[in-house]
Amino acid sequence: MKNKKGVQLNQMKRELAQLLETGQERTARIRVEHVIREEKMVATYDLIKIYCEFIVGRLSIIESQKTCPVDLKEAVTSVICAAPRCSDISELYDVRKQFTAKYGKDFVSAAIELHPDCGVSRMLVLFVGGSHEGLG
């Protein structure tokens, strides 16, 4: 998905450059917003990949403990939060279901709704949008 978005992003930048070269600044300004959104999504995919690798590396710890380990909370809650915001990565819904079964609906709802001290990465919130007031 990241590679696909990267190719699209490069094409969009080339088109943006052509618009500027031909003096279509007004159209270029509108397109810049879309380019920025796509760049944030690529950064989001990078962050999600890092969190998923971190989680996979510590699955045995997750399996052995009833509650989410403090050192894994940011990764776990960030992946949960990303699921509905990155709907093009359907596997995130499966991961969210597994964490719901493991930690309960309240834990998952807090991450999705960005409750204070839910643990979701501030960087992820900036990338995917949403209010990050009260995030701890």
Rank of each mutant, 00 (worst) to 15 (best):
F54C: 11
Q11A: 05
I61L: 13
E133M: 09
A111P: 03
V95R: 10
F107G: 08
Q8T: 05
K40L: 10
L19K: 12
L59W: 05
F107Q: 11
M123P: 04
E21D: 09
T27N: 07
H132M: 13
R14D: 03
E53G: 07
R85E: 06
Y45S: 09
A83G: 10
M123G: 14
V120R: 10
A75N: 00
Q65K: 12
L72T: 04
E74N: 00
I80Y: 04
F99L: 00
T22C: 05
S121D: 15
L92V: 10
R14T: 04
H34I: 09
G130W: 01
E38I: 06
R85F: 02
D88I: 12
Q11K: 06
E63G: 06
E15T: 02
I30H: 09
P84I: 02
V76F: 12
G104P: 06
M123R: 15
I36V: 13
G130V: 00
P116S: 15
R26I: 04
Q18F: 08
S131I: 06
L20T: 07
V42N: 06
Q8F: 08
C52W: 08
M123L: 14
Q98L: 14
I55E: 01
G129E: 05
C52I: 11
S131N: 13
A83D: 01
R96K: 15
L72H: 00
D46V: 05
G130F: 01
L92Q: 13
G119A: 00
M123F: 13
P69M: 01
I48N: 00
I36Q: 12
E63L: 04
K73R: 15
K73W: 01
S60C: 08
E15L: 08
G57E: 11
R14V: 05
V70L: 14
L124A: 15
R37P: 03
F107W: 09
A101L: 12
K49N: 14
C86F: 08
T22L: 07
P69C: 03
E53W: 11
E38Q: 10
F99N: 03
A111W: 02
E21H: 06
I61A: 10
F127E: 08
P84C: 01
L126V: 10
Y51P: 12
L92F: 12
D88W: 08
E25P: 02
I80G: 02
R29F: 04
I89S: 09
A110I: 05
L19P: 03
R26H: 06
E74D: 01
D106E: 15
E38F: 07
Q18Y: 05
P116E: 10
V79F: 13
D71Q: 13
L92W: 11
G23P: 03
G57C: 05
K49W: 09
D88Y: 14
R85S: 01
K49L: 11
K66D: 14
G129F: 10
M123I: 12
I36E: 11
K49E: 15
C118R: 06
F99A: 01
C52S: 11
V42I: 15
K40D: 13
M41W: 14
S121P: 02
K49V: 07
